[in-house]
Design a protein around this nucleic acid. Structure first.
Length: 492
RNA sequence: GGCGGCGUAGCCAAGUGGCUAAGGCGACGGUCUGCAAAACCGUUAUUCCCCGGUUCAAGUCCGGGCGCCGCCUCCA
C-alpha cells in the first residue's frame, strides 16, 4: 500500500516516497501575523494537520515546520494604525493563532520559526545568491534576478515574457527586470530594521521560507504546502531562490489546498464577508468546523454558509450519539448467551473493514471526503449492532460493541475527530446551547417533572403541550424506559 | 487576454472505464412509542450540464458547446 499525492509541480498524482526512508520533511507556509485568522486559514491548517496525522499514522516520522511571517508591509501598516510596535502586533496575532489552533485540535509543528529570529540565515542566503550571480543590489535593496534562473515560471506554469509586459514597477524600485522580486528591502524612515551588508532593512517575504526551511529541513523538502494562492508568486519565488542557491531540487511534492468561499463568493476584506475562526467557535464545537473542512477534498473549493455548519452539527451528533449508546449497551450485565443475528454479523463485518477502507481513501491523495463516508458506514453498522443487542440481549454483543466503538474512535481520531468522551460531548453541547437560550438545566428538569406527572395521570394533552412548548425553543424531549431525556436542536 | 478548476438527487458531497452511481443533511413511508423523538429498515439520480467521438463497455478518456468560479496585485 502506498500513498499517492497530487503534485502541483507535475499536475499529477504520484506515489509518495520520502527522500529518506520513513522520515518526512514537511513545510507549510504559516500566517502573516497582522490580523485574526479566518476560515480560510482554518482550512489550510486543518487539511495539513490531517496530512501530518495520517503520515504519522502510517508510520512515518514527520519533521513538520510551519513558519510565522512576523515582519512585512501589512504588519507595519497595521501596527501604525493601532499605534503599537510591529513586534507587539505580531506577538499578539501569533498568540491568537495558537489559541485558534489549540481549539481546533491542530497539532503544533515540530518547530514554528519566526522570520525575525532568522535574519542572520536570511542574510547568508542572500549573500550566496549575490555571489552566484542570481541577485543584485540596487540602492539599499537586493533583488533576485528572475532571468538568471531558467526554470522560473515552471511551478505556476506562467509565461514570463507575457507577464513581464504587464508588470508594474512601484515608485522607487530599481529593478533590472520588472519580474525581479525583493530579497532585502531598505528601511524607510521609522520602519523596523536590521543591519545587513546592504544597509539597514528587512527581508522580503519569500526569502524567509527558503532560509528557514533549509535551516530546519535541509535543501530538499519532501512536502511543501500552502493555499492555492501561494503558487504564484510566493512558491515560484521560493523555488527559484532555493534552487539557485543550492543547485538541488527544493521540493519533491508541492501540495496546495483550495479556497473557502462564503455563500459562493470569494472571501475578501473588501467585500467584508470573511468570517474568523473565533466567530465560528463561539457558536459551534471545534470538531464541527473540522468535520466541515474535511468533508470535501482538500483541492476543491469549499463553500461556507451558516446552514452547512448546522447540518454538520447534526452529522457529528449522530456519531457521538451512536458511540454513547453503544458504550452503554456494552456495559449492561447480561447473562444470556444467545447467538448473534445475521444483521449483527453483517455489521461486525462492516466494522472489521473500516480501517482498510479508511486507509484506501486516505492513501489516494488524502481523500478525507471519501474516508468520512466510510466512517459513517461504520456509525450505521454500530447503531445496527446496538439495535440487535437491544432486541435480542446476549452477552456475546459486549465485545463486538466495544470493538466497534474503538475502531470508529481510532479511525476518526486520525482526522482529529471524535476526540471527546461521547457522553461529555453530548452533555456539554446541550448545556451550552441551553445557556444561549438563557436557561439552566434545573429549569428544564422542573418542566420535565411536571410533564412526567401529567403522563403518569395519562393527561396527554398537558404532556404534549409542555413538550411542544419546549420544542418551540429548540429543546427536544425523548421518552425512554429509564425516563425522559432532553436534547437541543443545533443552532446556526 | 493568459493559466487553472468545476458542473453528480431538494441541498452538501465521493466516485481508480466494467458488479445495484459512496456518505451526510432534508423529505416521505414502516418498526418502536400514549403520541412523539432517537435508532433501525425502506423510498428519494433508469442517470451524472448539452452535443458528438473512442471503446465490447464512459459520470469516468478525447473534441466541441453552454454555465459557474479562481489565479494572473497582498492573500490560506
Amino acid at each position: 500500500m502506498t500513498i499517492k499525492i497530487y503534485n502541483t509541480f507535475t499536475r499529477k498524482k504520484e506515489v509518495f516516497e520520502p527522500l529518506s526512508s520513513g522520515y518526512v520533511r514537511m513545510y507549510v507556509c504559516g500566517i502573516t501575523a497582522y490580523d485574526r485568522c479566518h476560515i480560510g486559514h482554518a482550512r489550510s491548517a486543518v487539511v495539513f494537520d490531517a496530512v501530518l496525522r495520517y503520515l504519522r499514522y502510517r508510520g512515518f516520522e514527520v519533521n513538520f515546520i510551519r513558519n510565522f511571517t512576523d515582519i512585512d508591509d501589512k504588519i507595519i501598516n497595521r501596527s501604525i494604525e493601532e499605534g503599537i510596535s510591529s513586534e507587539a502586533l505580531a506577538d499578539r496575532e501569533i498568540r491568537h493563532f495558537s489559541q485558534d489552533m489549540d481549539a481546533l485540535g491542530v497539532f503544533c509543528a515540530t518547530k514554528e520559526p519566526r522570520a525575525t529570529e532568522h535574519i542572520q540565515e536570511i542574510i547568508e542566503l542572500i549573500e550566496i545568491l549575490i555571489t552566484k550571480g542570481h541577485a543584485y543590489t540596487s540602492g539599499g535593496d537586493v533583488y533576485f534576478s528572475v532571468r538568471s534562473f531558467s526554470g522560473y515560471g515552471t511551478l505556476s506554469r506562467r509565461n514570463i515574457a507575457e507577464m513581464r509586459a504587464g508588470a508594474r514597477i512601484a515608485v522607487g524600485e530599481e529593478k533590472q527586470d520588472p519580474m525581479d522580486f525583493a530579497l532585502w528591502k531598505a528601511a524607510k524612515p521609522g520602519e523596523p530594521k536590521w543591519d545587513s551588508p546592504w544597509g539597514p532593512g528587512r527581508p522580503g517575504w519569500h526569502i524567509e521560507c527558503s532560509a528557514m526551511s533549509m535551516k530546519y529541513l535541509g535543501p530538499t523538502l519532501d512536502i511543501h504546502g500552502g493555499g492555492l494562492d501561494l503558487i504564484f508568486p510566493h512558491h515560484e519565488n521560493e523555488r527559484a531562490q532555493s534552487e539557485a542557491a543550492t543547485g538541488k531540487t527544493f521540493v519533491r511534492f508541492w501540495m496546495h489546498n483550495g479556497f473557502v468561499t462564503i455563500l459562493s463568493e470569494k472571501m475578501s476584506k473588501s467585500l467584508g464577508n470573511f468570517i474568523t475562526i473565533r466567530e465560528i467557535l463561539e457558536k459551534h464545537h471545534p470538531e464541527v468546523l473540522r468535520l466541515f473542512l474535511l468533508s470535501k477534498h482538500y483541492r476543491s473549493p469549499l463553500d461556507y454558509s451558516p446552514d452547512i455548519l448546522m447540518e454538520t452539527t447534526c452529522a457529528l451528533d449522530r456519531c457521538y450519539t451512536a458511540l454513547s449508546e453503544a458504550i452503554h449497551l456494552a456495559e449492561r450485565s447480561i447473562k444470556k448467551q444467545r447467538l448473534l443475528t445475521y444483521e449483527a454479523k453483517e455489521s461486525i463485518e462492516t466494522l472489521d473493514h473500516l480501517k482498510n477502507r479508511f486507509e484506501y481513501a486516505m492513501d489516494d491523495d488524502f481523500n478525507t471526503a471519501q474516508a468520512i463516508g466510510h466512517l459513517f458506514d461504520g456509525v450505521r453498522a454500530l447503531n445496527r449492532l446496538g439495535q440487535e443487542a437491544e432486541k435480542r440481549p446476549s452477552v456475546l454483543y459486549a465485545e463486538p460493541l466495544k470493538f466497534g466503538v474503538q475502531t470508529i474512535q481510532d479511525t476518526f481520531r486520525v482526522l482529529g475527530l471524535l476526540n471527546q468522551e461521547p457522553d461529555a460531548y453530548l452533555r456539554n453541547r446541550n448545556l451550552e446551547a441551553l445557556g444561549l437560550l438563557g436557561m439552566t438545566e434545573a429549569d428544564v428538569l422542573k418542566v420535565i417533572k411536571d410533564r412526567t406527572r401529567a403522563r403518569e395521570e395519562k393527561d396527554w394533552a398537558t404532556a404534549d403541550r409542555i413538550r411542544d412548548a419546549l420544542e418551540a425553543k429548540g429543546i427536544i424531549l425523548k421518552d425512554g424506559p429509564d425516563g425522559t431525556f432532553w436534547t437541543i436542536k443545533p443552532l446556526t
